[in-house]
Each structure stands twice: as C-alpha cells, then as structure tokens.
Design a protein around this nucleic acid. Structure first.
Length: 291
DNA sequence: ATCTGTCCCTGGACGC
DNA sequence: TGCGTCCAGGGACAGA
C-alpha cells in the first residue's frame, strides 16, 4: 500500500513526465468514490492547463497548474499513478499473471479500474491513475483554496523533530501505533512503516503514547525517518498493489523485518513475530525485543 | 477532547 | 470447477 516512501518515489518519477507539459485531453471513468471533484468538472479544469509543480505532503500529491489551481491526489490503498506504456504483472489479474512470463507482459491498456487518463502535449506518454479499491482521491482545488484534509495534516514525518512527537503524545492514552497512524500528528506514516519503525526503535506497539519518554520519541522518530529514507532509496515497497510509475516493483519489501511476517523468526532474537489487531489494522512485532 | 468501531471497495485466499 | 465467505486497509465519520 502506498505510504510516504511510495508517494515520494511516485512524485520523483512522475515529475519529469508532467512538469512543463500541457494537458491536451482528459479521459475519466464513470463517476465513483475517487472523484471528490466530479469527472466532468475535473476535465474542464484540467484541459489546456500546464503542470508547473509537483509536491508532496504526507501521503498527498499536489500538482500545481499554471493558473495556480491545484490537483490533489491520494493513492489510498491500491492507487497507482503511472505512465502509459508501463508494463507490470501487478496491472494484471492473477489468472492472467500466472499465464505469462515477465518477458511476455503486454503493455498496459486502460481498464475499468483506470479512472483518469491525461493526454499530454509534446508526444509525452499519457499519465494514468488506476485504483482497484477506489480508496484513492482526486480533488481539484481553486487558486488560493485548500481542503480540510490538507489543513489538518501534521508535520511531514521526514521533517519532524522528536520533540514534536513527545509533545503531541502527552496525556494520550491510546497505543503508540495508533498515534503514529494519525495523520494530524505526523503526516505520512502508514501501517507498514509504523510496524517497521516500532521494531527498529524496540517499542511495543501497544505502549500508551503518553508513557513514551523523550528518549523513546527520539528513537522512534529517527527510526521512522531512517526506514522511510531507505525505502525511498530502494524504490518503495510493493506489498499489495503498489508499482512505480514506470511499472517496476519497489525493492524495499525484501528488507521488511516484521510487517506481514507473523510466525517467522525475529531478525534480532529469532522468536516468532506476533500479529495482533490494533485499531482495526494488522500489527506485527516481536514480543521479546519490543517492550 | 479523545478514543473506538464501522464503513466504503474489490480481488484473492480459502473451505466445502 | 465453482460457489460462498472472509480478509486486507486509509481515512471519514458516528457515537461513546
């Protein structure tokens, strides 16, 4: 699932295809959950506009257009933003997947899960937004306007200071894992990297947030940043449906220590990794190393 | 104010 | 083989 590293990798790889280019035509699927701005309006707003800037805040991408309006994109659980011509087994159903060798993969052609296709000038490839589970979001923002979803975001994890986590956690009784998933505290943390960072910092996911010491907050914020920067470096992780904009898989899933490894030996002490449910999310940790 | 549970959605895994 | 059931989860929201 796309979290901060996957969104950042997407931003870096999409930007060269997008910036300075003008939208010739916009193609949308039927209205659905992903369109916070209805498809028709979105087409009108984007057509003829040039992309000037592509930034990221937490898990949100913000594309600034030449009229100072912005397109807000969230990939949700299964959102994929990639260029036409990308070829990936993750764009195929499992039945199709198993019948093809990687060399035989056909180039992707828009399907029923492809909600947005931007035709760009200068013979650049089309930009596609695909989202099977429709938890992603597309929203057009008028010049100077914002959205509550953005306004309430906390500091981007990569820019956060440990003291911010320490202060935000005072008096809170909820589990530290649940605090990490709250985007208004630190923006960008999702289920995978929360588990990975808690393991790296040797903190039990159920520990009440308010009980964290300054030192523990220091370890945790450093671990979050280290784990995420490393993931960006290796191209993100491709658990679930994430693909890079060129169709390639991320490399980070091979470096996961605990996430989706329940029952496997802890890399530190070899005790089996435990899985519990916390805040309706699967949570993976080592009961011996994380107290 | 803070916290928990439910819901949205779909494909894949699993059991019979 | 095929059907039904359950599960995954980001974030909005309702209710405690």
């Amino acid at each position: 699932m796309p979290e901060l590293p996957e969104v950042e990798v997407t931003r870096r790889l999409i930007a060269p295809h997008l910036l300075g280019r003008t939208v010739l035509r916009v193609h949308t699927s039927i209205p659905s959950y992903v369109f916070l701005t209805p498809p028709r309006a979105l087409c009108q707003r984007l057509q003829g506009r040039r992309f000037d800037e592509l930034t990221r805040r937490g898990k949100y991408l913000l594309a600034t257009l030449d009229d100072a309006s912005r397109l807000m994109i969230h990939l949700g659980m299964t959102g994929q933003l990639f260029v036409a011509g990308a070829s990936s087994l993750r764009l195929l159903s499992s039945t199709r997947r198993s019948s093809l060798t990687p060399e035989e993969q056909p180039a992707f052609s828009p399907d029923k899960h492809t909600h947005l296709r931007l035709e760009l000038e200068d013979t650049g490839p089309d930009l596609l937004f695909r989202d099977v589970r429709k938890f992603g979001k597309l929203l057009w923002l008028a010049p100077g306007s914002s959205d509550p979803r953005l306004d309430k975001l906390g500091t981007d994890v990569l820019e956060a200071r440990p003291a911010q986590l320490f202060e935000a956690s005072r008096g809170r009784r909820l589990a530290v894992k649940n605090l990490l998933l709250n985007q208004s505290v630190l923006a960008g943390v999702g289920n995978i990297y929360a588990d990975e960072a808690l393991f790296a910092a040797r903190i039990h996911p159920c520990r009440p947030a308010g009980k964290l010491s300054r030192r523990a907050c220091q370890r945790l914020v450093c671990a979050l940043q280290r784990v995420m920067l490393r993931s960006i470096e290796t191209g993100g992780s491709s658990i679930s449906d994430y693909i890079a904009p060129d169709g390639s898989d991320g490399g980070y899933q091979d470096e996961r220590t605990v996430y989706a490894r329940s029952g496997e030996p802890c890399p530190r002490c070899a005790r089996p990794i435990t899985r519990i449910v916390l805040g309706a999310r699967g949570t993976h940790f080592c009961a011996k190393c994380q107290r």
